[in-house]
Simulated assay, not measured.
Amino acid sequence: MSDKHLSSQFDAELNSISTHVLEMGGMVEAQLHQAVYALVNMSLETAHQVIENEARINQMELQIDHEIISTIGRRQPTARDLRFLMAISRTTQNLERAGDEVARIARMVKSIIENGTPRNLPTSELRLASDLAASMLRKTLDSFARLDTTMALAIIKGDDDIDREYDGFLRKLITYMMEDPRTISPSLDLLFLAKSIERVGDHAKNIAEQIIFIVKGEDVRHVPVDKVASVIG
């Protein structure tokens, strides 16, 4: 078999793995939208659907991991291709963890509904933070598909927006709890829920860092944003 044919087969395998990563990411994004819909509309049925779909995301991670291990074993990739596969593995880990956070949101929504959270709590205000997180995840997947480092950098910078939304929501919840101690328990549920949304944004940021690692060969985890910008050039 010619080297060219082997190379084309390897490229096809890498493309297949990338496609599966995008499918997994798309499912996590859809799950996030459903979880927040369940909260805003107090839909127990939708919350159950999100919880049940968590297993599918976990299975997708296992499938991609198997494909990566199989490809490394059979192809013995060069440094650049091995870097790509390592970044893919880190990406699926972050997607799986984001999926865990979304499932956690759905479980908290289920608890909130069953415990009869007061309607005057600002549940609808979580929609903006969740929209930001979902947008970050969607842009990250787009950046991954294109290996676009400029977009990846913008995503890393955009993580601060979700952090600000979380801080603002926290201050609002503290006000509610001070004004009416009866809201303390449900407010804490909402606080943990908001934190899970913020963590989805963190995982999107982590994936964006892996995109830069693929393209530039530089590990920019735990690196200040200005230095990440200098890596991209």
Rank of each mutant, 00 (worst) to 15 (best):
M1G: 13
D3Q: 10
H5A: 14
L6F: 08
Q9F: 10
A12W: 12
V21W: 01
L22P: 01
L22H: 04
G25Y: 00
G26H: 01
G26K: 00
M27Q: 14
M27G: 09
L32N: 03
H33T: 12
A35S: 03
V36C: 14
V36L: 15
A38F: 00
L39T: 02
V40E: 13
S43P: 01
T46A: 14
A47I: 01
V50N: 06
N53S: 15
R56C: 15
R56K: 15
R56H: 14
N58E: 01
M60N: 03
E61G: 02
E61A: 03
Q63R: 14
I69D: 09
R75H: 10
R75V: 04
R80Y: 13
F84C: 07
M86R: 12
A87S: 05
I88K: 06
S89C: 12
N94P: 10
N94A: 06
L95F: 03
L95W: 00
E96G: 01
E96I: 00
A98C: 04
G99M: 01
E101L: 11
E101G: 06
A103R: 08
R104E: 12
R104G: 14
R107L: 06
M108K: 15
V109I: 05
K110E: 15
K110W: 04
I112P: 07
I113P: 13
T117E: 10
R119F: 11
T123G: 12
T123R: 11
A129V: 06
A133M: 02
A134G: 08
S135K: 11
R138N: 14
D142T: 09
R146E: 14
R146Y: 12
A154Y: 08
I155L: 05
I155S: 05
G158C: 08
G158Y: 04
D160N: 11
I162R: 06
R164T: 13
R164P: 08
G168M: 12
K172R: 12
I174Y: 04
I174F: 05
E179P: 01
E179N: 11
D180P: 00
R182H: 09
T183C: 09
R199K: 09
R199D: 07
H203E: 05
K205E: 14
A208Y: 00
V215G: 08
D219R: 05
D219W: 09
V223F: 10
P224C: 12
K227V: 08
V228D: 02
A229R: 08
S230Q: 15
